[in-house]
Write a protein that binds this DNA or RNA. Structure first.
Lengths: 167, 167
DNA sequence: CTAAACTTTCAATAATTATTGAAAGTTTGT
DNA sequence: ACAAACTTTCAATAATTATTGAAAGTTTAG
């Protein structure tokens, strides 16, 4: 496997993985491209490499910036904007984990809490609904806490966590 | 909030969360419905509750069975088939985590390994590709191991893990 | 201030993914 | 063996989601 082939494989694999986990393909691929680039890239660069439109590139770069994993680099003497992604894989994972927790998990935990707090009218089905949503709520809360804990012990959080669990 | 409203909210929230994480809405909703049901449900029951077609129900039930979180219950004296889901929230999470690891994470780890093993031709870009995909590979491998570790210390794995990390 | 260089927005369109429904397939009771 | 009861399959269709591209917007150099 030569460089170009390997690069294309990486970008497309990353795109597919993204799709599988609910992340838009272009967004994942832009991030992948920046991740292996040796220098910040302009919108033109990204459009050319990935063969996607200007609009698509612009919108997805914005989303990546909203997620906090891509930043605009202003290069002296250059009119256009350049972009780069967090290069440290652990920082990257931290950002993503924290954002998904904040945007997606926390709100669901809130809903589960509300649902599991409905008045118990002593019918079997109400009891079951309360019991099961409460169990889900508790699990989600613990898992979320656990994840944030793992992700917050920098640096090398992940290896540290693994060792702790192996003890 | 009354029972019916709470139930509908639960099912729709679960469906949306599924969508966000790359799981088809009907599949998530069927699982949600079974999860709070006091007894196994037939295909008719599910179709009526969720207002989805027979074909859709059949296909998604099959997928849920492939994932190992829904089982067919043969009720004596009944011709039709009934379905129920794993009711223990922790078992449920274990199944899902293990399946996603097996189907989605492990294959990507393999690809990352291949890519990071290309011959180093000493150009800067090749060095960067190798370095970054190797870092991603190592992270993914450790994270996957960590997750399987957490999920394998039953029962009450999740609380146990949390305590270990808090120490 | 103006025009060139660049970015963003968004309605239109394309691509993908989910859903339907009816025909084909299967199982079971008699 | 037959037919009723039930499930699966899959081509057609609908719904959703992603992408384009051109017009509008913004910034900067002169």
């Amino acid at each position: 496997m030569k460089y170009q082939e390997a690069k294309e494989k990486f970008i497309s694999t990353w795109g597919s993985l993204g799709t599988l986990w609910g992340i838009n393909k272009a967004m994942a691929q832009i991030q992948a491209l920046l991740f292996i680039s040796t220098k910040p890239l302009s919108m033109e660069d990204i459009m050319d490499e990935l063969k996607i439109s200007r609009g698509n590139t612009s919108m997805n770069l914005r989303q990546l910036m909203d997620w906090g994993i891509v930043t605009k680099e202003l290069i002296p003497g250059e009119r256009k904007e350049f972009f780069s992604t967090e290069k440290d894989v652990q920082e990257l994972a931290r950002h993503i984990a924290k954002e998904r927790s904040r945007r997606e998990i926390k709100p669901v935990i809130k809903v589960l809490k509300d649902i599991s707090s409905i008045k118990d009218d002593n019918t079997e089905k109400t009891k079951e609904l309360i019991k099961q949503t409460k169990a889900l709520h508790d699990l989600a809360e613990t898992a979320d806490l656990l994840m944030n804990k793992i992700v917050n012990q920098e640096p090398n959080w992940i290896t540290k966590s693994l060792f702790k669990l192996l003890k």
